[in-house]
Design a protein around this nucleic acid. Structure first.
Length: 231
DNA sequence: GTCCAGGGCCGTT
DNA sequence: AACGGCCATGGA
């Protein structure tokens, strides 16, 4: 078994199937004539070092008050926002972060996400990173999953799996990101990359949640023949 | 009761 | 540049 990315990807897809990511209820947004991309932006911030099950509770609270909207959040009392997102933890800083990004999009882009996303990835990324509370992973999640632009998201899971297999010994965010983008760009056509980056990251999250945990379950891991960890 | 989760900021070295 | 403390909730 070769431990190249394509082989790993195929093994993950065979086990988990095609994953539908980012987890967002597009029916809800069709009904309410709201923008699903904003739910992804909110989710990306709320899920910082937090279990997704807790983020879901916060999103339900926001929806129950019909607040899942850029204008509404940017206007809402921060005290009220803290209450709504409380289940997701770190609610003081996250409320502040949500206010900051919604106000930014509201002011600079008149709350229009098409205008916000419609430019070069590098410019978009730098602008996101300028905002307090938006680091590389949150920025890249927003660009890939809300903006539908090709950028590979690296998270703690990606780093853990890369170290265990091992794929490479690089540990910085940008090093790992560059490695994946370089390798996957060789394997797939340019217009497929957004979909591949999206799906690959989703597979990595699944793998890490179900098998490559902190205390790993290597026995039934879909890529245990490729991985060198604990052998 | 203990551990952990789809990070990021800030102060210290 | 790298590291540690901190932020908080809820499920396993």
């Amino acid at each position: 078994m070769q431990k190249n990315l394509k082989n790993i990807f195929i093994n993950l897809q065979n086990r988990f199937g095609n994953l539908k990511w980012w987890p967002v209820d597009k029916n809800y947004h069709e009904k309410n004539k709201s923008d699903y991309r904003f739910e992804i932006i909110v989710g990306a911030i709320l899920t910082q070092n937090t279990a997704w099950s807790n983020v879901e509770k916060a999103l339900i609270n926001i929806k129950s008050k019909n607040m899942l909207d850029i204008k509404n959040i940017s206007k809402l009392e921060i005290k009220e926002l803290r209450k709504l997102i409380k289940p997701s933890g770190f609610f003081n800083q996250k409320a502040k972060r949500l206010k900051e990004i919604t106000k930014h999009i509201e002011k600079k882009y008149n709350g229009n996400l098409d205008n916000f996303f419609n430019r070069k990835i590098k410019d978009l990324r730098n602008e996101l990173l300028m905002l307090n509370g938006i680091g590389p992973e949150t920025a890249d999640s927003i660009i890939l999953y809300a903006g539908n632009k090709p950028i590979f998201v690296v998270d703690a899971y990606t780093k853990r799996i890369c170290e265990r297999i091992p794929i490479n010994t690089k540990i910085s965010y940008e090093d790992i990101q560059n490695f994946f983008q370089k390798e996957l760009s060789k394997l797939y056509k340019k217009d497929q990359l957004t979909k591949i980056y999206n799906e690959f990251h989703a597979q990595i999250v699944n793998l890490a949640k179900d098998y490559c945990r902190k205390k790993p379950l290597c026995k039934d891991c879909p890529i245990n023949k490729i991985c060198m960890y604990k052998k």
